[in-house]
Simulated scan of single mutants.
Amino acid sequence: MITPVAGRHGHLALQQTALGLGTRAPEPYVVVTMDDPAAGLLAGRGSPPAEVVPVPVPCAGRLPLAAARNAGARRAVESGAGVLVFLDVDCVPGPGTVARYAEAACDGALLCGTVAYLPPPPPGGYRLGDLARTAAPHPARPAPGPGRVVPGGDPDLFWSLSFALTAATWRRIGGFCEEYTGYGGEDTDFARLARAAGVDLCWLGGAPAYHQYHPVTDPPVQHLADILRNGALFQRRWGHWPMLGWLHAFARMGLARLDPAAGMWHAT
């Protein structure tokens, strides 16, 4: 399993605790630290202990998430992993999540389990046994029942919070495009690469992840520059802009505008 991290050490600790209580241990458990040596110390001393892969952050404030996931996948494959499970640091796996991903993984499939968003933690923190009752799956994505696999998923709905694929399928796709840095775009690009490689996006039941609370803004105005930069990169690679909902929201706020003649979005 591969988890990129920069900060959010409490979230990492709870994820690691849940993995230790799961029905199948991740083999290996790789934590990719982005200019965060303290996270590496935490992950290496936890249970299960993680293999720590440090990745530098070349541009301050722009996390290299695509490069971090690729680095984690390389380490996992070098360590003998036949199935790669990616779980963001905010996500806590259910007790059977890793086992379900491993059971369902097959060449040519990109598996996406359900992700449910948790409310702020109660006093004393989240209780692992309560997570399934605390949050419902995201309403914009399919949520198959346990044991079900729904093929033919829309690549525009893919997100890297929780997904899995065989190592052979990872090599077939070629990993994430590392030109993306900061917030936004790399997920949809990866899903497009998967589709171009003939890999089917499949919604998987029985592999839940519970997203721990942290404050958010909608639209994410603090990431405006990243979204415009990464959106322009996506447009060059695929011929259209992603994240249009956010871009139109920025336009209504007077923060961005579309140049119709050039087909380009710009900050105002």
Rank of each mutant, 00 (worst) to 15 (best):
residue 128 L to F: 10
residue 81 A to T: 15
residue 127 R to M: 12
residue 266 H to V: 05
residue 164 A to F: 02
residue 42 L to E: 02
residue 43 A to P: 06
residue 156 D to P: 09
residue 258 L to V: 04
residue 141 R to S: 13
residue 58 P to A: 09
residue 32 V to P: 02
residue 83 V to T: 13
residue 140 A to F: 15
residue 66 A to S: 10
residue 98 V to R: 07
residue 130 D to H: 12
residue 29 Y to Q: 00
residue 188 T to L: 13
residue 192 R to P: 12
residue 196 A to W: 01
residue 146 P to N: 09
residue 217 T to C: 10
residue 54 P to T: 03
residue 231 G to F: 05
residue 40 G to H: 01
residue 19 L to V: 09
residue 169 T to V: 13
residue 213 Y to A: 13
residue 205 G to L: 06
residue 200 D to Y: 07
residue 148 R to D: 13
residue 18 A to L: 01
residue 120 P to E: 14
residue 60 A to T: 12
residue 197 A to K: 01
residue 41 L to F: 01
residue 43 A to K: 02
residue 231 G to T: 09
residue 250 F to S: 06
residue 37 P to L: 03
residue 195 R to E: 08
residue 200 D to T: 14
residue 79 S to F: 05
residue 91 C to H: 14
residue 236 R to P: 07
residue 216 V to G: 04
residue 14 L to Q: 03
residue 262 A to N: 00
residue 184 G to P: 12
residue 105 A to W: 05
residue 238 W to D: 01
residue 92 V to Q: 05
residue 257 R to N: 00
residue 173 I to T: 11
residue 80 G to E: 06
residue 22 G to S: 05
residue 160 S to H: 09
residue 38 A to R: 01
residue 80 G to Q: 03
residue 163 F to R: 04
residue 36 D to N: 07
residue 265 W to S: 00
residue 217 T to A: 11
residue 178 E to W: 09
residue 255 L to Y: 03
residue 49 P to C: 01
residue 91 C to M: 14
residue 167 A to L: 08
residue 37 P to R: 05
residue 237 R to D: 02
residue 106 C to T: 12
residue 96 G to C: 14
residue 139 P to D: 10
residue 212 Q to Y: 05
residue 124 G to S: 12
residue 162 S to L: 15
residue 131 L to A: 14
residue 113 G to A: 13
residue 1 M to P: 07
residue 119 P to W: 14
residue 57 V to P: 02
residue 223 H to S: 11
residue 65 L to Y: 07
residue 93 P to F: 09
residue 155 P to C: 11
residue 172 R to A: 15
residue 145 G to M: 08
residue 64 P to D: 03
residue 115 V to F: 08
residue 244 L to G: 06
residue 16 Q to N: 08
residue 30 V to F: 02
residue 143 A to I: 14
residue 182 G to V: 14
residue 266 H to R: 03
residue 141 R to W: 10
residue 53 V to S: 00
residue 4 P to W: 00
residue 168 A to S: 15
residue 27 E to W: 02
residue 21 L to G: 03
residue 186 E to W: 11
residue 191 A to E: 07
residue 174 G to R: 13
residue 12 L to T: 04
residue 196 A to L: 10
residue 195 R to N: 04
residue 236 R to N: 07
residue 228 L to A: 04
residue 10 G to Y: 02
residue 146 P to G: 13
residue 184 G to S: 12
residue 172 R to H: 12
residue 227 I to Y: 00
residue 103 E to L: 13
residue 142 P to L: 08
residue 124 G to D: 11
residue 106 C to H: 11
residue 91 C to R: 06
residue 195 R to Y: 04
residue 19 L to P: 05
residue 21 L to T: 10
residue 90 D to S: 11
residue 106 C to E: 10
residue 69 R to F: 08
residue 9 H to R: 00
residue 105 A to P: 15
residue 268 T to P: 02
residue 119 P to R: 13
residue 21 L to A: 05
residue 143 A to F: 06
residue 8 R to H: 06
residue 83 V to W: 05
residue 240 H to L: 03
residue 150 V to Q: 06
residue 2 I to H: 01
residue 106 C to A: 15
residue 87 L to D: 05
residue 17 T to A: 06
residue 154 D to T: 15
residue 1 M to K: 00
residue 94 G to K: 11
residue 242 P to Y: 07
residue 237 R to L: 11
residue 245 G to A: 09
residue 49 P to G: 04
residue 21 L to I: 08
residue 265 W to L: 01
residue 176 F to G: 07
residue 2 I to L: 04
residue 96 G to D: 15
residue 268 T to C: 04
residue 194 A to P: 10
residue 91 C to N: 15
residue 139 P to I: 12
residue 222 Q to W: 07
residue 107 D to L: 12
residue 116 A to V: 15
residue 59 C to A: 09
